[in-house]
């Protein structure tokens, strides 16, 4: 009884979607303000070094930045489509759309990789001798901010990728259920005689055919593809929350793009 009570505490209100949403939004707030500190720093330094920021921004490749913006915008679209699909119980469609999201996110990271390595190749990275020697202080600040902010953003993209893999796992996982069945019935079902009988400890004891009539009840384990109404509704919440997180990553990029690439 007490064991039961202890677990009950953990899952008392699975149905309060609103509360779960409040929790998720508050978490997003903390993310916004985590970046917020950096945006404050950006705002301050841009006001101190307006010209240097323009000079430095001109060295970033607007084309790559724009392509990455499109990648993230599109991945945001595929996430919402996945959510709608799951809501309409189009499970396959949802899975495909999550894969598409993952693909765009990877594309974003690949682009970022080439962009960063080109810059690093030219000796522009935090603390590099070339950067410190050949560039004005304002430009150094610009690049320091650029690496910090896009780096932190990239980290969030990677975390998002991992989250989506988890969501995929949960959606594709087929539940295993254990049900009790009277032996009388089981032995008369065609084809069940060959099923393996396993002890509680997991040892193989033989097949159903070898059981004798003293057995009354048999636990049978079934792995099944649930019908629509039996699917775990928590998967939807998981995907939705992953989506919220992903859109936030998108929103942050929507600001990073003009602030670093377009203010030439």
């Amino acid at each position: 009884m007490s064991n039961h009570a202890a677990t009950m505490v953990a899952h008392k209100h699975p149905s309060d979607v609103e509360g779960a949403k409040i929790g998720m939004w508050l978490f997003l707030f903390t993310e916004v303000l985590l970046f917020g500190g950096l945006f404050i720093a950006y705002a301050v330094y841009r006001s101190v070094y307006p010209e240097a920021f323009q000079t430095a921004a001109a060295n970033l490749d607007t084309f790559i930045g724009a392509v990455n913006t499109l990648f993230l915008l599109t991945s945001s679209l595929t996430v919402v489509i996945a959510i709608v699909a799951l809501q309409k119980d189009k499970q396959k469609m949802a899975v495909w759309m999550i894969w598409a999201t993952v693909l765009f996110a990877l594309g974003f990271m690949v682009n970022k990789y080439f962009e960063w390595s080109a810059k690093i190749h030219h000796g522009i990275y935090p603390g590099s001798p070339e950067l410190l020697a050949d560039h004005s202080k304002g430009e150094i600040v610009f690049y320091n901010l650029y690496y910090t902010m896009t780096g932190l953003h990239g980290l969030h993209v990677i975390i998002g990728l991992i989250v989506f893999f988890f969501v995929l796992y949960f959606i594709k996982r087929r539940p295993v259920v254990t049900e009790e069945m009277p032996y009388e019935i089981l032995k008369n079902v065609r084809g069940t005689s060959r099923l393996a009988v396993v002890s509680e400890k997991g040892e193989e004891l033989g097949t159903v055919a070898q059981l004798d009539d003293k057995v009354e009840l048999v636990d049978i384990r079934l792995t099944y593809e649930p019908v629509a109404e039996k699917r775990d509704p928590r998967n939807f919440v998981k995907l939705e929350n992953a989506g919220l997180y992903w859109h936030l990553v998108d929103v942050i990029w929507i600001f990073l793009f003009p602030l670093f690439y377009l203010i030439t």
Partner: peptide, 15 residues
């Protein structure tokens, strides 16, 4: 301004 407009679209509809 444009970024703010874009992000409010994302927040209002996508989120």
């Amino acid at each position: 301004l444009i970024a703010a407009f874009k992000s409010s679209l994302v927040v209002a509809w996508f989120m």
